[in-house]
């Protein structure tokens, strides 16, 4: 898969050393997750995913993810033809383990973030982002 500036716009937060590595295009979300976690159990504490509940424009949806202490965070758009969005890796000198980007969503779907912690454990957060026709508001 190609990463174009049109689809994603990366911003490093503070002095974070964030690098985006495109994942190989797996067909299924579960395969992506299994490849990242190696099948390990995934917790829910210590990761924050910020995404709009309803996208203003499905072609460019701002998201932000942070997981203090993480060595890597993978972001997936579960309903896209190619679910893999990015994996951010953080070196030992990174001051903060957070990243913000904009992603394109094909329709209403869950956005998933999974962080790999230094002890080899994993934590996960997800949020549904609705992509709607709109109109008719109060």
């Amino acid at each position: 898969m190609n990463f174009t500036r049109r689809d994603t716009l990366f911003m490093a937060i503070g002095s974070a050393v964030a690098a985006a590595l495109p994942l190989r295009a797996f067909a299924a979300v579960e395969d992506d997750i299994a490849a990242f976690t190696g099948g390990a159990a995934v917790g829910t504490e210590g990761i924050t995913l910020i995404a709009p509940e309803i996208a203003e424009n499905g072609n460019t949806v701002p998201i932000e993810v942070s997981a203090p202490g993480a060595v890597a965070i993978m972001v997936l758009a579960a309903g896209n033809p190619t679910p893999a969005v990015a994996t951010f890796t953080f070196g030992p000198l990174a001051a903060a383990q957070s990243a913000a980007t904009r992603i394109r969503l094909a329709g209403t779907q869950d956005v998933i973030a999974i962080a790999k912690m230094p002890d080899g454990s994993f934590v996960r957060a997800s949020q549904e982002v609705k992509v709607t026709i709109g109109g008719c508001g109060g």
Binding site: P52, E53, I54, A55, E56, N57, P62, T132, G134, G135, C136, G137, G138
Partner: peptide, 21 residues
């Protein structure tokens, strides 16, 4: 402000702004 302005109303009228909860 109303969180869903560019969705419920025409976003092209105020393209500089984004809202949300």
């Amino acid at each position: 402000a109303f969180p869903y302005m560019p969705i419920a109303n025409p976003g092209w009228m105020f393209p500089e702004y984004s809202f949300g909860i």
